[in-house]
């Protein structure tokens, strides 16, 4: 039980650091904040496109 818990934590941490779960987090945020609005959330592909464009618009890497 405890072991499973830690592996799960490690895995979700890894997904979060790498941005693997970015779309899920976006959906959760959307449900929480914008669900009542008369709009649809972005689909996975369009979200990822927008996300990459946003991420690379500035200083992201150092020497």
């Amino acid at each position: 039980m405890n072991n499973v818990y830690w592996w799960h934590k490690l895995w979700s941490g890894l997904r979060q650091v790498s941005g693997d779960d970015a779309y899920e987090r976006y959906l959760a945020h959307w449900q929480e904040r914008h669900a009542h609005e008369d709009r649809q959330p972005l689909d996975r592909k369009r979200f990822f496109k927008a996300e990459q464009a946003r991420k690379w618009n500035g200083v992201r890497r150092c020497c």
């Binding site: 790498s18 941005g19 693997d20 779309y23 996975r44 990822f48």
Partner: peptide, 11 residues
Amino acid sequence: YMRNVRPGRVL
């Protein structure tokens, strides 16, 4: 791959 085949599957 990350854009068209499996969008956003970074890992």
